[in-house]
Design a protein around this nucleic acid. Structure first.
Length: 344
DNA sequence: GACCATATTCGTCAATAAAC
DNA sequence: GTTTATTGACGAATATGGTC
């Protein structure tokens, strides 16, 4: 694997550059592509492979621009409408471009007085963030149909896919020391989510059918990292224990009645709504923080994925524009030749 | 193999935009 | 105005490649 050239240090500006360093032809999956917070994308650049872009043109009707088919190195075929197009919004929106144009004031004093305000406004505008990658890309795709849209996340919002029973809305969420998440839904269903796996594949739901009447007060989940017999245990209401088998590809869970007191390493958490003591409040705050961190963690992952997709889209666009540019140059040369032969 | 430099990945924080 | 989503920035951990 070839190394990447570091684009800039940490003390310098961290503005995103689209400058690519090396090329990689294999078209890796997004997740396998190396990145440094997308400061450099050695696995992304296809600029050097422009020679592999093939073009097929077809003329459109009168007044409408010709449609060009561009075959990208990745095998993707892109329809490019017209060689000369109306000005399109730049896909790379510099924050400076968003700076407010301040009209000159007639009164110099007022101007001086408002200078500080204007400066702060300008600074604020300059520092303001550009629209999200999803938005930029979707706007791009509305301008140019060849640009793929970043799809809205549907897997979570639209519920479980067909064939998989819909999950109950969790009322309490806990994380074990091994990184698994345990959600207790209304009705007693326990959902165990393994963050290492994808989506619902990492979810197991345990429905308590024999737990009897719920205990008054807090819903208690107790988690033991490992019991003496090599299993993971989750203690649930009704003085019962959900035991996870330690071996096997498919984790098996079993409801047991505990025979001993709480093993070492048991973590207890109380559900919201029944908090009274400062300790419980602190636990609730911790729980909320964990939830927030978990959500942000997932959001960061998603953001990075979109960013990679966005950069891939930009690279495709560069490839298309390179081809167009080449065509224009060739056309210009042809016209020049025709003109020179006529004058002779 | 040890060590170093650099690259990559990931979690977190904080600022901002967008949604409500 | 509050909540939620998004994303740049940062640092830590880890991976990778080169040199001795």
């Amino acid at each position: 694997m070839t190394k990447c050239v570091k684009k800039y240090g940490k003390t310098t500006g961290r503005q995103m550059t689209m400058e690519m360093v090396e090329s990689q032809q294999d078209g890796n999956a997004v997740d396998s592509m190396p990145e440094r917070d997308v400061q450099n994308q050695p696995g992304q650049s296809q600029i050097s492979s422009m020679s592999q872009v093939s073009v097929a043109s077809s003329s459109a009707g009168r007044g409408s621009p010709a449609v060009t088919l561009v075959q990208l190195p990745s095998g993707q075929t892109v329809h490019v409408q017209g060689v000369i197009q109306a000005t399109q919004p730049s896909v790379i929106q510099s924050p400076q471009m968003q700076a407010v144009q301040v009209a000159p004031t007639a009164n110099a004093d007022e101007s001086a007085e408002s200078e500080g305000i204007i400066d702060s406004q300008k600074r604020r505008e300059i520092l303001s963030r550009r629209p999200s990658y999803r938005k930029i890309l979707n706007e791009l795709s509305s301008d140019a149909p060849a640009v793929p849209k970043i799809e809205e996340e549907k897997s979570e919002e639209e519920g479980a896919p067909s064939g998989i029973p819909a999950m109950a809305v969790p009322t309490s969420l806990y994380q074990t020391s091994t990184g698994q998440y345990i959600a207790i839904a209304q009705g007693g269903a326990i959902q165990i989510s393994n963050p290492a796996s994808d989506g619902v594949q990492g979810l197991q739901t345990l429905t308590m059918t024999n737990s009897g009447a719920p205990q008054p007060g807090a819903t208690i989940v107790q988690y033991a990292a490992q019991s003496p017999d090599g299993t993971q245990q989750f203690f649930v209401p009704g003085s019962q224990v959900v035991v996870q088998a330690a071996t096997g590809d498919m984790p098996a869970y079993q409801i047991r009645t505990p025979t001993t007191a709480l093993p070492q390493g048991v973590v207890m958490a109380a559900s919201p709504g029944t908090l009274h003591s400062p300790q419980q409040l602190a636990e609730e705050a911790t729980r909320k923080r964990e939830l927030r961190l978990m959500k942000n963690r997932e959001a960061a992952k998603e953001c990075r994925r979109r960013k990679k997709e966005y950069i891939k889209c930009l690279e495709s666009r560069v490839a298309v524009l390179e081809v167009q540019n080449k065509k224009l140059i060739e056309e210009l040369e042809t016209l020049k030749d025709i003109c020179s032969s006529k004058t002779d």
